[in-house]
């Protein structure tokens, strides 16, 4: 059981459209504390300084992609309890399997509905209240 309003979430995507969509979805399920980052580099710096409970990150980004971000994140012991949900638009099972090996908690396929977003989060942190 987790209280949605207490969850700190970070959304990482190079496209503002996608960040806004995820943020709006999160807000609709009660997760209102959302930080947005256009690059994984910025996200990494920020979540190390101020941890987040859930990170929802795109895979396909310039410079540092989602998997590299995840690998760096898991390389920091303080980040082991951060839930990582990979946002992917690719019909790419290999990618998802690799993400799992790197320590992703779940994946979310674009385009997604608010219900799917909620389901994917609840699969990781338990029912949201």
């Amino acid at each position: 059981m987790a209280t949605a309003s207490k969850i700190q979430a970070a959304v990482v995507d190079d496209q503002m459209t996608m960040r806004s969509l995820v943020r709006t979805g999160l807000q609709q399920i009660g997760i209102v504390n959302v930080r947005e980052f256009p690059t994984a580099t910025e996200a990494l710096q920020s979540v190390i300084a101020q941890p987040a409970h859930i990170i929802i990150s795109d895979f396909n980004m310039p410079e540092m992609d989602g998997l590299e971000f995840l690998r760096k994140l898991r390389g920091n012991p303080a980040m082991k309890n951060t839930a990582f949900i990979l946002l992917t638009g690719r019909a790419d099972k290999d990618l998802v399997v690799r993400a799992l090996q790197f320590g992703a908690n779940n994946y979310l396929v674009k385009p997604f509905t608010v219900a799917t977003l909620k389901e994917k989060i609840e699969q990781v942190v338990g029912a949201l209240t």
Partner: peptide, 15 residues
């Protein structure tokens, strides 16, 4: 797809 979501305990989020 063979992917089981990895559960994380966020107990500290208890009200």
């Amino acid at each position: 797809i063979d992917f089981k979501p990895a559960v994380i305990a966020l107990d500290d989020l208890d009200p």
